[in-house]
Amino acid sequence: MFRDSAVRVIGRYGSLVVVMGFILLPGLWLLVSSLKTNQTIFSSTPSWLVEEGTLDHYAWALGGRGLDMTRLMGNTLIVCVLTAAITAFFACLAGYGLARYQGKGARVAIIGLLIAQMVQGPMIMLPWYQIAMNLQLLDTRTILVLIYQTMTLPAAVWLMSGFFKNVPTELEDAAQMDGAGRLRTLTSVILPLTKPGLVAVGLYAFILAWNDYQYALIMTNSSSTRTVQIGIAQVMESMGAQNWGGILAAGVLAVVPVVVLFALAQRYLIQGLTAGAVKN
């Protein structure tokens, strides 16, 4: 029916090139520019090729005399790992509950999750700031891990419940017949089957926490708690156009972890996200 003429094939791949160009070229320009020397970065005829590459900007970005990305990334890493672990644990419990609960209010719980997903940033940051101040938690990593759960949990629970729903209930009945308690059934029968989901949810939480800017902006300040986003933003404010090379290199460094993790998790994430979105 849809026979392939040469024109069609060219049209198809031509449109692909345009779309992927729009999506990928800006990021590529960041990478290319970050590898150039200061003379070529600011050259009046920009070139997409790196003629004489240099890693100077990366050294500046990573080093303690420059942006100190090593420390920033260390701070962020701790916060993100904790956020991911806590989210995965509670999303696992609640997701399992949501997947199996048949009683009244199941719909209310789902709508509650949906609303919670929308209730973000400016709508909750004032009380959070005050509570953090009263509990002496301002400028700590603890408060970041706590507030990040508001971004990660709603969708994480929803994703996990999707994965649990794919596990047939007969398995649970069989395990219980064998005398396993319900928690035991969860940990030794159900969880091994949903491990990919659990990993995906953990990575999802990690990525969100890594990418956060607004909460870290109001909650942290000192160099021992500052996250990558805040560190870069502060340098951008204070030096602006003077050290583009270093800022570009820092940008590349900040994006590498998320892209790698996303590549690992994308199959399950896309599955979970689109299943939820399209069904409604």
Binding site: L30, S33, A233, W244, A250, G251, A254, V258
Partner: peptide, 27 residues
């Protein structure tokens, strides 16, 4: 499809760097 999602998973600060650099007034 995977590559398409890269801008979506990027930290917002990096996105800001990219476009500030592209639309820089001088360079």
């Amino acid at each position: 499809r995977g590559l398409m999602l890269i801008p979506w998973v990027m930290p917002v600060i990096v996105v800001a760097i990219i476009w500030r650099w592209i639309f820089d007034g001088q360079h």
